[in-house]
Simulated assay, not measured.
Amino acid sequence: MTSKTPKIMILYASYGDGHYQASKAIEAVFRSKGVSEVFLLDLMAEAHPVLNGLTKFVYLQSFKTLPSIYGWVYNFTKEMQPETSLLGVINSFGINKLQQLINKAQPDLIIHTFPQIAMPRLFKKTGKSLPFVNVVTDFDLHGRWIHPDVDRYYVATDDLKQEMIDRGISHERILVSGIPLKPDFVPERIPETEALAHLDPSKKTILLMAGAYGVMGGIRDISETILASGRYQIVAVCGKNEDLYRGLNEAFGSSPDFHLFSYVNQVAAFMRASDGIITKPGGITLSEALACRLPIFLYRPVPGQELNNALYLKNKGIARIANNPKSLAAQIDALLTNESDLSDLIQKIENLRKPEAAEVIVDDIMTQWFEPASSELVLTAEGSSYIW
C-alpha cells in the first residue's frame, strides 16, 4: 500500500463504444476523488493503427453480414485457457508500445476494460510488476478475461462471480460491482434535456437505440410496425450511422410520433423519459437501462456476447427477445398494458441494477492498494487538485 495520490492507467479498445464509456466512467470517479493523473489508452489504436482499423471494420461488419460466424468463433473460444498459443498472440499485440507508455507515465495500477490482457506478457518480458485489475463489461464471461496474474476482477452479477469461481478464480479476488456507468446514471444525478420537450405526454415512449455505430438491423420495419398502432411514439437514436439517420428521416420525418436523433450524450435523460427500450444487448447499454429501471426489448441479438447477454437477462425475467417486428410489437403491448407484469419486472430489475458500479470499483481499488493521504485532498472547480 502507498499513501501517495496514485497514477492510474486504463486500457480499453474502441470496438463499439462500451469499453470506452466504462473507462470514462471510472476515470470520472477517480477525478472526483482527487486522483488527477488518470491515463486512458486505446492500446491497439495507439500501437497498430492500421491493424486496429481493419479489425474494427471486420468486427462492425460482422454484426451486419456474418453474425453467425462471429458467434461461432466467440462461443468456440469461450472456454479458452489463458496460456493457449492463440491468446498468447492476441495479448502480445502492442506490448512494446505499452512498455514505452508505462515507462513514460509511471502508473501505480493498470485497469483493463477490454479483454486483451497484455500485462502478464509485459511483466514476463521486463521482469517488472504492477497491480492490475479487470473490469468485465458484459453479463457473459469469455476466457479472454481470465488470467491467473490478474489481481482483482470486477463483475456485473453474482452469477458471473460464481462462474469465475468455477473456473478456478478464488472468491476473494472477485467483487460484484456492476458494470461502470457515467455519473449521469446515478438516480439523483439524471439530468433533464430540452431535446425531448416535444414528446406527447398522452402516449408511451419507446426508445430505439441502434448502438454507437448504428449497426442494429431492422429498425425501419420495427418503427413502421410500432407506429402503425397509434399508441406509441418513438425516440430513435442512430449513433454515428449517417445513412441510417437519413433513411429514417426520409421514411418517418413527417410523423409527429417519430423523434429522430444521431449520436447523443444525454443517454440517461433519454432513458428516463422513456417507457421501454429496443436495443442491441451490449453490456453497457443493458446496464444503463437497468439503472433507469427501463423495460428492455431486444431484437435479433447477434450471436456471441450480445446474444449471451440477452439470454441471461431473459432468463432473469427482465428482457424480452423478438425475431420479427410483429412479435416485438406484441411483447411491448403485452408488458406496457399490464400493470402487474410491469411491476413484477421493475422489481426484478431492482434486484440486479447497480448504478453506482464505478464508485464501488474506485473505492475498492483505493482501499486495496492506496491508503488515504493524511491531509485532505480537495478538488477545485477547474478539476485540478491541491493539498488543503
Results as ranks from 00 to 15, higher is better:
Asp364Lys: 06
Ser262Leu: 04
Lys128Phe: 10
Arg300Trp: 08
Leu141Phe: 07
Leu66Ser: 11
Thr279Glu: 03
Ile95Trp: 01
Asn324Gln: 15
Pro6Trp: 00
Leu66Lys: 11
Gly168Ser: 02
Pro148Arg: 06
Val133Gly: 03
Arg293Pro: 04
Leu51Lys: 06
Lys326Glu: 13
Pro183Lys: 14
Thr5Cys: 14
Ile102Glu: 02
Ala28Pro: 00
Tyr245Leu: 09
Glu371Pro: 04
His48Lys: 15
Phe57Asn: 15
Ile346Glu: 08
Ser340Glu: 14
Ser340Pro: 03
Pro49Ala: 08
Ala156Leu: 05
Gly214Trp: 08
Ile169Trp: 01
Leu345Tyr: 10
Leu208Lys: 02
Leu87His: 08
Ile169Asp: 01
Ala228His: 09
Leu342Cys: 09
Gln116Glu: 08
Leu141Glu: 07
Gln61His: 15
Thr205Cys: 06
Leu207Thr: 03
Lys240Tyr: 12
Gly88Ile: 11
Leu43Gln: 12
Lys33Leu: 15
Phe185Arg: 03
Gln81Glu: 13
Ser229Leu: 01
Glu371Gln: 08
Ile361Pro: 05
Ser274Val: 08
Glu306Ala: 14
Val29Pro: 03
Asp257Asn: 14
Leu227Gly: 01
Thr55Ala: 14
Gly127Phe: 11
Ser68Val: 15
Ser36Trp: 03
Leu109Gln: 06
Thr55Phe: 13
Gly127Asn: 12
Val135Pro: 10
Arg144Asn: 14
Ser3Pro: 01
Ser14Gly: 08
Arg144Thr: 13
Leu66Gly: 03
Leu290Gly: 07
Ile222Met: 04
Arg353Gly: 01
Lys161Gly: 05
Phe114Leu: 06
Gly253Trp: 10
Arg173Leu: 00
Phe114Val: 11
Ala322Glu: 09
